[in-house]
């Protein structure tokens, strides 16, 4: 579970950017917070039009892509890199999530600074074991020279984790989950209201299910 913290104690006046995970669930009552607002229609539209960079520099894009690739790594199946999670995050930061841009920029600078200090090279040039070591330092809050007062290192790590995971599993129209990589991995066939639901035989596994990308799952 991602214990995403409240970063700003003041309530927003317009659309809220805070969600408590379980307040959004049937269960409720967890202590966990998520601070962010998810991409609104502008970001959705931009994601549909293009996978071009809107916010990140080329170097930032590569760094975020590399971090996301350690959060959901590539193995015999695609991970966050192949799913285009960095594109999802770029579109979010381009529009309704724009207030997190400076946090991202400062955090990315600090992460590369940490990589340089420890290993003499930027994050993206490190082997994966060293990348994980840096992310563990970030997660535990151990980042010298952290300049953002908006969020602590561990809070930023929780945010980029949530962004990556949601980019991996949200509808591909938001810019991530490219080629349904996330849904293929977990065996989710896609939303069903528009396709008329499921038959009783499908509900007990006696009939295959057609996925939104066209293949069938048992």
């Amino acid at each position: 579970m991602l214990p995403l913290p409240v970063l700003d104690p003041q309530p927003r006046r317009s659309r809220l950017s805070r969600r408590e995970f379980f307040a959004r669930s049937a269960l409720c009552g967890s202590t966990l917070w998520l601070l962010w607002s998810l991409p609104r229609p502008l970001a959705l539209k931009a994601a549909r039009q293009s996978a071009e960079r809107l916010v990140f520099s080329e170097a930032e894009w590569k760094l975020v892509e590399a971090i996301s690739g350690r959060i959901i790594p590539t193995d015999e199946d695609p991970g966050a890199v192949e799913a285009g999670c960095v594109n999802f995050i770029d579109k979010a930061l381009a529009y309704e999530e724009a207030d997190l841009r400076r946090l991202y920029q400062a955090a990315l600078r600090a992460i590369d600074g940490l990589a340089e200090a420890r290993f003499g090279q930027p994050f993206v040039d490190q082997p994966t074991e060293r990348q994980d070591e840096i992310l563990l330092a970030l997660e535990s809050g151990d980042v010298p020279g952290w300049s953002s007062d908006r969020a602590s290192p561990s809070e930023f790590f929780q945010i980029i984790c949530a962004h990556t995971i949601i980019g991996f599993l949200a509808d591909p129209s938001y810019g991530g989950n490219r080629d349904y990589a996330g849904w293929k991995l977990i065996g989710y066939p896609g939303p069903r209201h528009e396709f008329g639901g499921y038959t009783p035989k499908q509900m007990i596994g006696e009939e295959k299910i057609q996925t939104v990308w066209g293949t069938e799952i048992d």
């Binding site: 809220l16 408590e20 307040a23 959004r24």
Partner: peptide
């Protein structure tokens, strides 16, 4: 207090 959405 904490501020947010707690109830569904």
């Amino acid at each position: 207090t904490e501020t947010g959405q707690f109830n569904m």
